[in-house]
Amino acid sequence: MAERELIHSGVVRTTHWLVAISFVGLLVSGIAILIAHPRFYWGETGTYSTPAWLDLGLNPVYDNTGWGRALHFLSAWVFASSGLVYITAGFVSRHFLSDLFPSKTELRSGAIANVLLLRPLRRGDAAASWRYNVVQKLSYLIVVFALCPAMIWTGLAMSPALSAQYPFLAAVFGGHQSARTVHFIVADLLVLFLVVHLTMLVLVGFGTHVRAMITGYRRSSEGGI
């Protein structure tokens, strides 16, 4: 029996932390940009003098967009390139196929309910925390293949240069302001994911799981080997 087992590859670990750091950068700078105009619209245009679809009711703060935008785009470059490496490696190494795509049995509603009712956790099954359960697999897949690409897409759609060259970027949402609104909604979903991700980590053992994502290994004493 092995003393320890490699569970996170070097690519997964590196890109995980690059994405984590750049996500913090994107979130902080995203808020800095958002509070300069905390109102949302659908369509092409929207200003203080047009009705908003969603008004956050905050007093606008204008003087944080300089560093905010610089940090946002620098972080976005790190985020997007790490994501691209992660996704490419995930397919090439068959990591997605063997670890993330759920099986037919897992997709049965009973199996999903089992996870949602936190039964494995309540059984105190340490080994279970090292296997991705079906809800976890599905949320990772949604984050990786739907939410993150949607963030990058809507972000690029707001660019006046790129939307001139590639008009479909904003057109599929119905215009510049729609892209901005979707960018905000998907950002909220990603923050929700982060909250659940961190909560689950605390519930199953923050230290051991974070250590495994840094070193790549888990010890036999941590269960499941």
């Binding site: 560093w67 610089a70 620098l74 470059w77 660019s159 006046p160 790129l162 939307s163 001139a164 060259q165």
Partner: peptide, 25 residues
């Protein structure tokens, strides 16, 4: 500077991805 890296990547990439003539809608 640090932010200059992002500025350069963005400017360079857009100059490569967006043709000179393309008109805004």
């Amino acid at each position: 500077g640090l932010f200059g890296i992002g500025e350069t990547l963005t400017y360079g990439a857009q100059r490569l991805l967006v043709s000179r003539q393309t008109l805004a809608r």
